[in-house]
Design a protein around this nucleic acid. Structure first.
Lengths: 257, 257
DNA sequence: ATAATAGTGTCTTTGAGACAATATGGC
DNA sequence: GCCATATTGTCTCAAAGACACTATTAT
C-alpha cells in the first residue's frame, strides 16, 4: 500500500505538514559598462546576481535571495512570477525552475521547503526595486563576490552555485543568450555574452563557424531591411558588422552524433 | 519587504500551509524479451513505466504513479529514495529529480504539492514488488499505453509526459544508457537501447562514428583482458563483437561549436 | 595614412556519409 | 559452403583549425 492511501486531509490534519513553501529567485543580470577609450569598443560586461540583506530573524544581517511564500491559490511558478514582478516591477523576463531545497533543518523557522528559480533580467529592471522599496538594502554582486565574500542566509549558497552551473549549461545548450542581447546584435556581441557567462568558452573561429556550417544553420539569421540589403551596425567598431537575430529553431544535441 | 519577513512559524501558525508534500516516481524499465528465431539475435526491448491502480478515494480505480508523503525528518530526495526502495526492494538504481507539480486543485484532498522523480530500474527489481504487496494491482505499460489507453489519476499524465521527454533528452545527452546495459556491452546493444528510448534516433554509421572520431572519444572504451587482448562476445551474433564499457567522461555539449 | 575591428582566402586535417568488400563463427 | 552479423576499405564532401590577407570606417 502506498502512502497515498494515508493522505492527510485538509479538513482533519493528523500528519505533520510543512510550515511554508517559498519560491526564491536567483536574479541574474548582465551589467554593461562603457569602456572609456579613445576608440569605439565593446562595453565591459559582467554577470551579477541580486541579493537582499535580511533585517530580521532568522539570518538577520546576512544576504539572501529575494523570495516569498507561495499561496494556496497559485502554483509555485506563479508565486515566483509574482515575486519577480514585485522585485523588478516588470512582468517579462526569463524565469525558469531550478529545483527544490528541502534538507531538514535548512530553515530555523520550521519545515520550510524552498523552490528555487532563476531569472534573467535587464539591469534597468532592478533600478525600480532599489527606489521603491523602503530602506531595504539591495546589492548586485558578481558570482565570485557572492560565493567568496558574503555571508549568505540559509542554504542560499548552494542555490546560487546550482543556478550558476545551470545558467552556464543553458548558455551553451540553448539560446538564452538572447535574453542578454537586443533583438539585433553582432556576432562579437554574442561571443562576448557567452564568454561573460562561461569564461571557459573559447572559439577562435567563432564567426566563421556560425556563418559557414550547415549544422549550425538555423539558430541565427542575418538581418536584412525591406529591400533585402543586409543590415549592419558600427556601434562598437569602426567597420560596420553584420547584424543577426535568433530564429525559433532549437537544435537537438547528442553525445553520440 | 519580502515575504520572508512574514514567515509562518512552526510554533504559532497564522498562515495557510500545504496539506502534504509527496514524492511521486516515474519508474522506467527496459523489458527484454528473447526473440525466438532460428539464429542468434538481439532481444526485443521496450520502454515501460510502472503504475499502480488506486483502490481508494480520490481517483479510486485510476492508475497512478507510486509515491508517498515526505516527512519532516527527510529531504524530498530521501523520501523518493525511500519510496523507490519500498517499491522495488532495492537500494540502487538511477533516481533523479524531475520537477514540482503545484497547480491549485490538482489534488482533491487539499493543497498537495507533488515532487516528481524518475527512476531507471531493472525489470527484475519490479518482481519483488508484485509479490510483496498484498493485493495491490501493479502494471507495466508502454508509454503509449499509459498515455493513450489508461485513465490516470491527478495530473500524472502530465508528469509521465514530462518524464518521457526528459528521459529521451538524457538518453542523448548523458550516459544514462549505462543504466539499461550490463557493464560490458556491444555497440549494437547500445544502439538498440538508444533507439528503444528515442525512436527518432537514426545513425547509419553509428559504430564507425563512435569508434573513429576524436570528439566522441572518451565516453566509451574497449574492454580488454589482463593481457591486453580485446574482449568480444557472440551472445547475440555469429561473429563476435567487440565489448565496450562507459568511462567516467562526461562530454560538454554546445550549440555553438 | 593609421588604427582597429570585421570578414575572407587558402591550406591542411579530421569527420560524416554512403557502399562495397571482407572477416568470423554457427550451422 | 552458406548465412547473418561485425568490421574495415575507400571515396567524396563538409567542417575544423590556423593564419595571413583584405575591407571598412573614424579619426
Amino acid at each position: 500500500m502506498t502512502d497515498h492511501e494515508q493522505a492527510p486531509s485538509s479538513s482533519a490534519k493528523k500528519y505533520r505538514t510543512p510550515d511554508g513553501v517559498p519560491a526564491d529567485i536567483v536574479m541574474f543580470t548582465l551589467t554593461k559598462r562603457e569602456r572609456k577609450t579613445f576608440t569605439k569598443t565593446l562595453p565591459i560586461r559582467e554577470l551579477k546576481v541580486m541579493l537582499i540583506r535580511r533585517r530580521s530573524w532568522p539570518c538577520a544581517g546576512m544576504w539572501a535571495l529575494p523570495g516569498g511564500f507561495c499561496r494556496e491559490s497559485e502554483s509555485i511558478y506563479d508565486a515566483a512570477k509574482r515575486e519577480l514582478k514585485e522585485e523588478t516591477g516588470v512582468d517579462g523576463g526569463h524565469l525558469e525552475y531550478l529545483g527544490v531545497y528541502s534538507a531538514p533543518g535548512r530553515d530555523p523557522r520550521g519545515w520550510i521547503i524552498s523552490h528555487a528559480f532563476y531569472a534573467l533580467v535587464e539591469e534597468w529592471m532592478l533600478e525600480h526595486r532599489q527606489a521603491a522599496d523602503d530602506a531595504e538594502e539591495v546589492g548586485l554582486f558578481t558570482i565570485n563576490e557572492a560565493l567568496e565574500e558574503l555571508e549568505l542566509a540559509f542554504d542560499h549558497r548552494d542555490i546560487i552555485m546550482d543556478a550558476y552551473r545551470k545558467i552556464q549549461q543553458q548558455m551553451l545548450q540553448t539560446t538564452i543568450a538572447r535574453q542578454f542581447l537586443p533583438e539585433f546584435f553582432t556576432l562579437s556581441e554574442l561571443y562576448q555574452v557567452i564568454q561573460t557567462v562561461v569564461p571557459e568558452f573559447k572559439e577562435p573561429n567563432f564567426i566563421r563557424k556560425i556563418t559557414s556550417t550547415r549544422s549550425r544553420q538555423g539558430i541565427l539569421e542575418e538581418v536584412r531591411d525591406d529591400s533585402g540589403k543586409p543590415l549592419s551596425s558600427n556601434q562598437y567598431s569602426q567597420r560596420p558588422a553584420q547584424l543577426y537575430r535568433f530564429t525559433d529553431h532549437v537544435p537537438l544535441l547528442s553525445i553520440y552524433t
